[in-house]
Amino acid sequence: MTPSALPSSSREAPRALRITDAARGSGDRVFGAVGAVAAGFLGLVLVTVAVCVVHLAWPSIRETGLSFFGTSAWDPARDVYGALAFVWGTAMTSVVALCLAVPIGLGVAVFLTDLGPRPLRRPVSSLVELLAAIPSVVYGLWAAFVVAPLLRSSIEPALAAIGGPLFRGPPMGVGILCASIVLAIMVLPTIATVSRDVLAAVPSELREGALALGATSWDVVRLVVVPHARRGLFGAVLLGFGRAVGETIAVATVIGSRADVSLSLFAPGYTMSSVIANEFPSATSDLHVAALAEVGLLLFVVTVAFNVAARLLVRGERYGRALTVPAGNR
């Protein structure tokens, strides 16, 4: 196709913009080459990271096979490794964090799109996004000096009075509960802003139609907006889950660093990312390094799976905007 023969439909326009067409001289070819190299580099980086982790993990994969994920015995002194405790800790902290963050995040999203007073929507939106901007290490500092002492001195003793398998053991301050709370705060902006964008993408005709039929604002949300956006909202939750699973520094500060499977929220635990942060620099045996890398490999696979799934659910540009340019203008 020659450039002069521009198609009438804008849908096909990009085809006309293909840079493979050499008629326009070397500038285009250079542009195409530079762009392709730059874009290809990103792919190369991803492949390098993946290959590197697999390569490091190989001795452990060969040695332990699938049983690696079925046992919680993590004993570097005896060179025996199993990742179950980290999988458990990661799942536990992420699930508890989402239990706390999802209702609040969805509430915030609905406030921002439908229920909140208009003049408040924009500033609240900006503030929630600011929450996402605070560095992980600052969350860790705050958690260690504010949240953990509070948990130890008042919240955990109060919860212990309720009893049950979730609230057993001495109040330590640090542990699964503390990490979960911090994670909840950290994933909340992701869930809130992505949900906000998903809800805002529901066509206004639907809202107007329902309102014209006499629906209240809550009826609109409940009966029209949320059912229409269900897939996207699920995607927002998955995205939040992906973030929670990968979070490292804040969790490493307050998780209590203990490779154990326990149902109690008071118990210290470990997550996949925080064990890598703690042990990777000081692992002395080759198998220990490989086992940590294998934990990393699992972390890689899990986070990628969640992100790709979320990406499929929250389709299109809205999702891209939500993550990259949360412009605080919706």
Partner: peptide, 16 residues
């Protein structure tokens, strides 16, 4: 438990 630089402690909180 055994001995070494990274033993597996049966109880407790780990700290850096």
């Amino acid at each position: 438990v055994g001995l070494g630089v990274s033993p597996r402690f049966p109880v407790g909180v780990g700290s850096r």
